[in-house]
Design a protein around this nucleic acid. Sequence first.
DNA 1: TTGTAGGCGTTATCAG
DNA 2: CTGATAACGCCTACAA
Lengths: 334, 334
Amino acid sequence: MNIKEIARRARVSHSTVSRVINNVETVDPRLVRRVQAVIEEVGYRPNFQARALARGRSHTVGLIVSELSGGNPFFSEIILYFERAAVESGYEVLISFADTEVRPDHVAICATRMQERQVEGIAVLTFGMEHYLQNCAIDVPMVYAGADNVLKNSRNIRMNYLTGMRDAVKHLADYGHQRIGYLSGQLSWSSMLTRFEAFRKAMKSAGMVFDKELVAEFDHTWDGGALGMASLLNLPKPPSAVLCCNDVSAIGALKTLNSKGLQAGRDMALIGFDDLTMCRFTQPALTTIRFSPSEIAGLAFRALLEEIENAENKTQYEYKTRFILRESTCAPKL
Amino acid sequence: MNIKEIARRARVSHSTVSRVINNVETVDPRLVRRVQAVIEEVGYRPNFQARALARGRSHTVGLIVSELSGGNPFFSEIILYFERAAVESGYEVLISFADTEVRPDHVAICATRMQERQVEGIAVLTFGMEHYLQNCAIDVPMVYAGADNVLKNSRNIRMNYLTGMRDAVKHLADYGHQRIGYLSGQLSWSSMLTRFEAFRKAMKSAGMVFDKELVAEFDHTWDGGALGMASLLNLPKPPSAVLCCNDVSAIGALKTLNSKGLQAGRDMALIGFDDLTMCRFTQPALTTIRFSPSEIAGLAFRALLEEIENAENKTQYEYKTRFILRESTCAPKL
DNA sequence: TTGTAGGCGTTATCAG
DNA sequence: CTGATAACGCCTACAA
């Protein structure tokens, strides 16, 4: 079923049908009704591809997230809220999981595939794999989040890790902690590095001594967190408080603590990062640094839209993390 | 940059360029090289939309999941594995979150939108909202999972909830539990109803008495689980074991138990459903019934592909749940 | 206000 | 083996 068939049945030209579909004002109301009746009757829906081709606009945007985090609810929420924002503005979203772990160039492959699909813009929310796109010729607007260097034709949403990190460290300092550990994902990921550096900076500005020994670098998964905490506990002098690079690894760390008969919020202070819904349901409820997927996804889409529609005054978006106090911290145990 | 421009630069007709792009064997190797050189030089990539229009195939499929579960890692994994399977077979995936909670007809809206985009098939993995599609004219193949009634032009992947449920109940019976409770999501969701019925059937075949009082119907979220467990604990005679409709609600239930100073695996036996990665990291590790998102997503895509390509012998896929023993069960506490 | 003709970037069918 | 030419379904001048 197509526009011509509708035209034939309604005894008008296909241009008229096109006008009706696109709500052009100047069509005779009687024709409008006649055409709409036929459309209704046969259940016709315009072919988006053809429309896109003719108009030169696909009304589709791409979203790339990283695959490693497939089981990570953080990305689940990113996708949900990005899609919602897109649909609200009349866009559809094509999604790709970049296997950044095994194939660093996979981000570029995904982006290229999307471009062939004529997406009008791409949001790369991998938080630290963006540099792999450097030598890949994408000519649609792109938006990153928390990238360190911004390519041309693209936009970066600044991630202020420091705001939340500073309050977290201050909170621990107020409790009297001297030995604050850090559980990191792989520092080759720029977002992991950035978080880590924010941590160091926060330590410094709180007047705390930073001890390299107290940093465990594993990966930002459940297992990574569990292993990392185990390695920290194995130190001759373990930390009395640990800040984690994300909630998922903090939950892994929680597991290790429990298996040793220790409890966060009593025997050790533990702080996560992201503020997943789940944090309220861990035992104890996880104190964390909010890095809201819904807000970030929203900002990313808005920025992308500005870029696509070449908005006059482009906002420089910045997302500020913030400290969320729950129950997993305590004074240092003697 | 398009096929004609390439043709001009390579001094051939655009048909020849098209042949080169599509690896047609019969082209003079010298021309092939000349064309490829130009393509390489200008970084040309074919326009998928135009191609889809000409070929009458979009090589795109739709995936609808339910929005309520946005923060639920289960769907995050569904999306990941579905996308991966699709890309492997040369398809792209358009994703939609159906807001089944607030707008029951939203599934139909999503499906319609997808059809306008010329998807070649749609997988509806909402596990129980399929009936809302009944009076909506979609004319591409669809695949459901665990739907009760199958519409025409569509396929259902049978979900065998019973296999896992039976072993779970048997496990509890072996421990000597007499009062087994059930924590359900809203029974208006057919998947929730089906799970519940599987539970009853399992109880029956284990020779257990089913007590309606021990069923709490909230919703299958963290909060729903927490509230549900609270209501069960408030009963004059609370159950000694509880089976939950999914892991997320089981984790919520865990929270309530903890807040009352009770511990699953010591004071009460608790069993989840889904087997999220996270189950290994709850405290205690959650015994559950495996309902693997990766396997289900894989089956769904395979079935959809068969439907799209009109395969000769269509497989009747069935997914069998299975019991996964961890640490959250115990004998009934006296 | 309506219809005709041409174009969007491809593929596919023919002659040559 | 190659190159016109006509689709695919829709939009959009421009002409009537």
